[in-house]
Design a protein around this nucleic acid. Structure first.
Lengths: 194, 194
DNA sequence: TTACAGAAAATGAACGTTCATTCTTTTTTA
DNA sequence: TAAAAAAGAATGAACGTTCATTTTCTGTAA
């Protein structure tokens, strides 16, 4: 009558190996055997933790996305004024993308390829709700342009992904000043008043 | 002593099949056999036109990128005022992404994955020069914020890719009005004066 | 105008390799 | 000690590429 438990360390090692290898080679170019080797585990062991390769990458996506949004909203409170709230969230997102760049690269790759199930994609979007709520408030107060959420995201948040990828390729080095410029551009594009 | 020529139609069919299949399934999930079938050609024939699978996708990328930039600058002249020039180029890019959405999706996927050689990527960037020149002019005239080219691209052009992907997934429908809003946001983020 | 030779182009089948997954056995631990 | 966890070897399918052969086409000679 045993009641062993699968090791959470092993699961984490598998998830981290997946992120690193998929970042370097892409999903279909990373064999399960390589993931296993990097996680110091037998290929067969992966199937104790995940149903199959697709499940492994879906679960990895959802987990990373959850970390991302938790980080983004960690210092934000709904009682903040709209402009301050946006500033706080924006800078947390920027910090995440720069500090946890492997995670951020993985998400960027997932968001632009047919690598992830549509269901898992939906699951990942849910956690952005606080930002959408903030925007709704800003629009009601006349501080933020009356644009759709997709439009606001496209101009205020998504450019950070582009800049992060450029930085990771070595095309750009984002210092503090450039980051402030980026924030200015983001805010300029969504605030009302010219 | 014959002097046959390889059919340009066959080459085009191969390129188009590659775009469509890679868009749907990703690079490593599209077998050469499937590309061949869609192009109505034997798998072996691909190797008369391209060295190997990597070469096929690199060449496809460069060709699509060239079409994209040609389209973008087709109605632009260097004698235009900066603001008008930007407006013209921006709208042409938007038009390309909406009309030739398969091509645009393919480029977006290439730009965020390790699918393409670094050399081919460099090759593709070259053709953007007219836009960089326009920005240099705008900065000199004090019309455009003194930001790096990457920063300007991130805020003025790249959001269109995000919106196009969202539209292709069915999350958004970009009508004329929304497109004008998008242009406004783009211009707001890079013009001087508040 | 036709017939033919020869080379390029195209093909389908075959090859060797790699991969995701499973099977059988061993190890670990409550 | 018994069952879960882990392992390594095995399996069958699928892949990129090549090979041996056939088809297509053009320049030339009759």
């Amino acid at each position: 009558m045993a009641a062993l438990q699968k090791s959470i360390d092993k699961r984490n090692a598998l998830i981290n190996a997946t992120i690193e290898l998929v970042n370097n080679d892409g999903f279909h170019a990373t064999p399960m055997s390589k993931i296993a080797k990097m996680a110091c585990v037998s290929p067969a062991t992966i199937y104790l933790y995940f149903e199959n390769k697709q499940d492994l990458v879906n679960k990895t996506y959802i987990e990373v996305k959850a970390n991302y949004t938790a980080y983004a909203f960690a210092t934000y409170y709904e009682t903040m004024p709209v402009e301050e709230g946006f500033k706080v969230i924006w800078h947390r997102i920027a910090e995440f993308k720069l500090k946890e760049s492997a995670d951020a690269m993985f998400l960027a790759q997932c968001d632009n390829t047919p690598m992830i199930d549509e269901a898992s994609r939906q699951e990942g979007i849910k956690h952005l709700q606080p930002l959408l709520d903030l925007w709704a408030r800003g629009k009601k107060e006349g501080i933020i342009k009356p644009l759709s959420d997709y439009m606001l995201y496209a101009y205020a948040i998504n450019p950070l992904s582009f800049l992060m990828i450029a930085q990771n390729r070595g095309s750009v080095k984002l210092d503090k000043e450039q980051l402030e410029q980026a924030y200015e551009a983001a805010w300029s594009s969504i605030k009302t008043c010219k």
